[in-house]
């Protein structure tokens, strides 16, 4: 039992917390707590990356951790908070299916992800290979969130959470992507959120609501 090093235990613990937060986001009804949960997920991701960096001595992972902290735990939540304030979103987030059913779908997704990831992670030799299943599950849960939510902001949060999951997968399978790729993705996400922020205003201007089901009515004339 004691053969497992403390760092692996810590990484497993942080990965579990990330999975927990993914479920909490899935179940969260209100917008602002949803954004806070996303920020918390970013923070946990940063801590887990730091542990991997410290254990393996991979210097560029420190950079990734710092980038995660700045972007996902501080900047993006701040932008989203500001958007919510400016758009004056008050109503609860509504989903296409109710929360308990969502949860059950989530459990099924986690089972699938774990089963798919198990043979892959056995090929890998990193200390954090066990968390690949959790990373995959986080991606799929974020997908589920984007599918079942009808409002624009939770969908964007789902998109960002998916990026969190991908980042965790990259860290656990191969000790992170090259720095150039990571910077590129970070910039993409940032620009994406800013553009989507502009979209929010346009959508609301057009329909007086952020419900993206309205977009189905758009037709070319």
């Amino acid at each position: 039992m004691s053969a497992v090093s403390l760092s692996t235990q810590l990484i497993n613990l942080f990965a579990s917390v990330i999975l927990l937060l993914a479920f909490a986001m899935l179940a969260q009804r209100r917008v602002l707590p949803l954004i806070n949960l996303f920020a918390l997920q970013g923070l946990t991701l940063c801590l887990s990356t730091l542990v991997v960096a410290f254990t393996t001595g991979q210097a560029h992972l420190y950079g990734s951790a710092a980038l995660t902290l700045l972007l996902k735990a501080m900047l993006l939540p701040w932008i989203l908070h500001r958007l919510v304030r400016q758009l004056q979103v008050r109503a609860d987030v509504e989903g296409l299916i109710n929360i308990p059913a969502t949860m059950i779908a989530g459990i099924v997704l986690v089972m699938i992800a774990f089963n798919v990831a198990l043979p892959i992670s056995q090929l890998s030799s990193t200390i954090s290979r066990g968390t690949l299943g959790i990373a995959l599950a986080t991606v799929m849960l974020a997908f589920l969130m984007m599918i079942i939510r009808t409002k624009a902001i939770p969908q964007v949060v789902g998109f960002l959470a998916m990026e969190n999951g991908l980042f965790l997968a990259a860290t656990s399978a191969t000790y992170g992507m090259p720095m150039v790729v990571e910077l590129g993705i970070a910039l993409d996400v940032l620009v994406g959120v800013i553009i989507l922020g502009v979209f929010f205003f346009q959508i609301r201007e057009q329909f007086d609501s952020l419900d993206i089901r309205n977009l189905e009515k758009l037709k070319e004339h």
Binding site: M1, A3, V4, N12, A15, S16, L19, L20, F23, A27, I99, P100, M103, I104, G106, I107, V110, M111, F114, A117, L118, G130, T131, G133, I134
Partner: peptide, 25 residues
């Protein structure tokens, strides 16, 4: 039911995490 459904979910997650992360341990 939602409250207890969440409890069930956590318990199942615990079981799954046990199988995934700690099975080799």
């Amino acid at each position: 039911p939602e409250f207890l459904g969440t409890a069930f979910l956590f318990a199942v997650l615990g079981l799954l995490v046990r199988l995934l992360l700690e099975s080799r341990v």
